[in-house]
Design a protein around this nucleic acid. Sequence first.
DNA 1: TCGGAGTGCTGGTATTGACCACTTGGCGCC
DNA 2: GGCGCCAAGTGGTCAATACCAGCACTCCGA
Lengths: 250, 250
Amino acid sequence: MTKQTETRDRVLELIDRLTVGQAIPSERQLSVDFGVSRLTVRAALDELVREGHLIRRRGSGTFVSEPKIAQELTMTSFTEDMRRRGMRPTSQTIDLRVVPAGARLGRFLNVSPSEPTVVAKRLRLADGETMAIETLHVPNALVPGLTGKDLELQSFYELLSERYGITIAGGIQQIEPTVTNEEESEALGVPLHSPAFLFERTSRSSDGKTVEFVRSIYRGDRYVLVSELTPQTPRTGVPVLTVRDDGRVY
Amino acid sequence: MTKQTETRDRVLELIDRLTVGQAIPSERQLSVDFGVSRLTVRAALDELVREGHLIRRRGSGTFVSEPKIAQELTMTSFTEDMRRRGMRPTSQTIDLRVVPAGARLGRFLNVSPSEPTVVAKRLRLADGETMAIETLHVPNALVPGLTGKDLELQSFYELLSERYGITIAGGIQQIEPTVTNEEESEALGVPLHSPAFLFERTSRSSDGKTVEFVRSIYRGDRYVLVSELTPQTPRTGVPVLTVRDDGRVY
DNA sequence: TCGGAGTGCTGGTATTGACCACTTGGCGCC
DNA sequence: GGCGCCAAGTGGTCAATACCAGCACTCCGA
């Protein structure tokens, strides 16, 4: 725990006790209070400003900012995503089998086409309603003994971390519009050819190995992507998955 | 021009002359070369690392990184977006009329329902191929005398800035999957009910006024959203519009 | 020849001190 | 009472210095 992260955490606690628009103590004051140098305080505040918790006003002070409309799109699993939105995520494993990766999947996972690979098809629910259908592909060697039941009990990423000691370090996700086919429509309970998002994600672990390739179909009538746009300044354009509760969310 | 931004620029020049994977001089060396403190060099490098130009390796050095797959999604117009990808953006104004805002649009634009509003429908092309169809809504008072031809000659945001003195300060964009209707299919030259992205964007100027509401339909077969995912650490998840040149882009 | 310890580099963190640019509010003058 | 100026406080920037932790290479001894 560096002083900087410690300072960051202490400031976050401060923020929790304040309301939007209120000023936090000055950098000089904080450096005295916490017993660290002002630069350390600044570094911690820098981070919080980047994350949208604080707003600096030169000559005036540093203030608690509006909660960001669009939160960071971090490396979240479906489970975390739903929890963050106060919904209860569940999962039904429709199918789980181990098959050779094949050419295309082998390329994605960076393994031999003959490599045994777990292919799991899951229906993802939020508060009991269908939200997405997901097909997971993982080299079997990474997750020996994985069962369909395992996937229903906890987040796959939690499982990866706790049972197999694998932590996800990053990934890349591609999003396209699509329409549901017969199988997807039936599983999701929506009309045939309903608009949907197709997510394709490849994740890699901290040692650089490709861990999974996931293909998900999200209901277009329940999901929207919202991104906040900022001009010029390379601040961050932060998109987020937002559940459409009723008809619209503005 | 602060020393930090100056240092940043000089390092960027350095990067241009190097290839991916090569090391830049050490922080201490740069601070001597540029005649600034190491702290200043670090701050400049911090920014470049955040933007994805450089990668630090403790004990080893700082290296030129792969160009980021996902660039920042800044407040871009279609025009800027296409230019950044090396394509030539053009525009055909299909229709332009001034009508009362009405209830729904008035709410979006934060004006009275009877407020005269420019509604312009444009076909957006990239390298001569249809890419999107866009319907622009702007209070007429903000852009008096706007013609359909104006919109074909330059970016609307450039026009706003140069002729009307309005600069866009931010906005929020919502993205959904949809399918094209008859009119859209015909205009875009795709089959009826083709998958497409629906973008709805509301932009505000620096003085807080809502400037525009834009509704765009992007061809799903030519557009994909790519977002790079980073775990835990609230670095930035940066999504971007990526043109699908051929069949796939991986 | 091979392996391991040592050493000199790298970036990572932290401190102290200083000055600048800007905001704000109070004080004094009109 | 109102206006304008000025001082105090704020964040923004920068310097010089120190020590820590990780990496890679060299050199020496087995």
